[in-house]
């Protein structure tokens, strides 16, 4: 059985904001299936009692003092912007009003 369907790949593409083509969907579905079946091997390891590792450095509490450092100039900040207006980054109209915070 395939690990992932074409529809699931289409869903992943939407979640990832990738406007993939129909042709790409076919290719990716096959490739992601091979990859996911291979990586699913991690499931063979009995690791119920094993703590996860997210960082390999044994550091904690790396904090910075609350001291102001120089900012970019607005020109520098906007230098790479595809579009800007009124010293702000311009974007096309937004569909989704909801924002989490």
């Amino acid at each position: 059985m395939a690990a992932i369907s074409r529809e699931e790949v289409a869903h992943l593409a939407r979640l990832s904001r990738l406007a993939v083509t129909e042709e790409e969907l076919d290719t990716f579905a096959g490739q992601l299936d091979v990859i996911l079946q291979a990586v699913a091997q991690v499931g063979e390891v009995a690791a119920a009692d094993i703590p996860p590792t997210s960082h390999s450095v044994p550091l904690t509490n790396v904090l910075r003092e609350d001291v102001v450092t120089p900012c970019l100039t607005p020109e520098e900040a906007l230098s790479g912007a595809p579009d800007a207006e009124e010293q702000r980054f311009r974007v096309p109209r937004i569909l989704d009003e909801d924002v989490a915070s």
């Binding site: 001291v67 450092t69 120089p70 607005p74 900040a77 010293q87």
Partner: peptide, 23 residues
């Protein structure tokens, strides 16, 4: 606080747009 959560940009209110920013 004087500065933002993860960088040293000031948090003061009311600056001109994109003047309290860094990489």
């Amino acid at each position: 606080t004087n500065t933002k959560m993860f960088c040293g940009c000031p948090t003061d209110f009311g600056g001109a747009p994109n003047t309290r920013v860094c990489p």
